[in-house]
Design a protein around this nucleic acid. Structure first.
Lengths: 230, 230
DNA sequence: GATCGTTTAAAACAGTTGTTTGAATTCACT
DNA sequence: AGTGAATTCAAACAACTGTTTTAAACGATC
């Protein structure tokens, strides 16, 4: 094994992985062809079979490495003791960064978005190892926020405790609001003017907005104390 | 042309359209094969070419008819004069119904979701004719809500007017929260317990939750009066 | 320098895809 | 029944897919 070259002439295996990312993200697992990947990587078609067994093997490895890189770059905040409002802001920003941050060209998150609608055999791993940790931290944080809010309430209001499913709804609302800016990017591109998108649809603005909405919801009894059918 | 039979023996054209819906929704445009559609419809493979020109022609017609049916069944609320809060609730419910209502088996909205991530030549039409109307009504309603809220504020608070992009952020947050329950259904199925999903993840509960969150956000100055960088 | 395991190369394979062909069939109308 | 257009059918087409094959090139070790 040669480990001396580090400039442009890399390992065939590595070149395959690097070329596979954009292609799988752009076309999806099925539409992506090993021929296009190999051409883009400048390697022979048979290399996929040799190094990864088959197309799915290459895809599995790509997903694994991408997820690990994404987690390293935007780790799930673990500020357990601090102010829940600050933790919420951090979680939302982490979510938005993982989704919108375009280090290479935004294909990383596109991979995971495609798994949501066209799941492959790796989907369950992605949810358990990538989605669940930050989701559960979000649930904990929102629960802490609600509890904090209700402690400062006047005692007469504390008749009914906020049920668990409301916390889950809130967490999923947050995630949905974040994810939508990637999933619905094509529609947003048509619905929102380019100038508006350029000025106000960055990670920072969107994170702050979603955090503010969530905090407002947590402080509203109409959300945390759901009424019986009106 | 025969128009006498209306029971099980329908027009070949109609049978093709009816069979195409579930297949295109389940597999996506590319993965769906005309062979599977024709087998499911019980017609010859060449019928697609004869009646619709080609695969894309069949798909175009399916999208058109599905969109029109969906708009008929869940029309965009046009209660212009009424209480904006009521209008908001109606819009959210319409959105959730269009997305989650499973008349046949939920494939109708799946079609549009797939267009968001793997757009075909019909995507722009869908956005302009299906998404934009209800989106703009949502924007108008939220703007009306904010104005109504700020009228009742103490005059000292009305220093800064809510900028337009905040209204757009709010509208997209609402849409994202709704859409996520379809796009992220696969992940939600893993993250949320089946019992919880069965009891609290229906159209009614989710619509009320999202409406309440939006109303809370509209009433929060932290949302409608975005601060300069902290 | 010969040798053996590792890696790459071009070509072919078997399967599936959307589409087309040309004959057979159906159908309304005389 | 006969006619002519509309429709359906089985079969084949050309293009593309993932994968395999077989031989060639490489690289370290003796």
């Amino acid at each position: 094994m040669s480990e001396s070259q580090c400039q442009t002439e890399l390992d065939t295996r590595t070149r395959l992985l690097e070329a596979a990312g954009p292609v799988f993200a752009a076309r999806g697992y099925d539409r992506a062809t090993v021929r296009e990947i190999c051409t883009s990587a400048g390697v022979n078609i048979a290399s996929v079979g040799y190094h990864f067994g088959d197309k799915l093997g290459l895809y599995r490895e790509l997903i694994r490495e991408t997820r690990e890189a994404r987690e390293r770059q935007f780790p799930t905040p673990n500020t357990a003791g601090g102010d829940p409002a600050v933790t919420l802001a951090r979680i939302v920003r982490t979510l938005m960064s993982r989704i919108l941050s375009a280090d290479h060209s935004g294909w990383e998150s596109q991979l995971f978005m495609r798994e949501m609608q066209s799941p492959t055999p790796v989907f369950e791993d992605i949810v358990e190892q990538y989605f669940r940790p930050i989701y559960e931290r979000l649930v904990q944080t929102i629960a802490a926020l609600i509890e904090l809010e209700q402690q400062t309430d006047t005692p007469t209001d504390t008749a009914t405790k906020t049920p668990d499913h409301v916390v889950e709804h809130l967490a999923l609302t947050v995630i949905g609001a974040c994810v939508h800016h990637k999933v619905g990017a094509g529609a947003i591109e048509i619905l929102i003017s380019p100038e508006r998108r350029k000025n106000h649809f960055d990670i920072d603005s969107l994170s702050r907005h979603i955090t503010a909405v969530t905090l407002a919801a947590v402080r509203s009894n109409d959300v945390t104390r759901p009424a019986i059918q009106p």
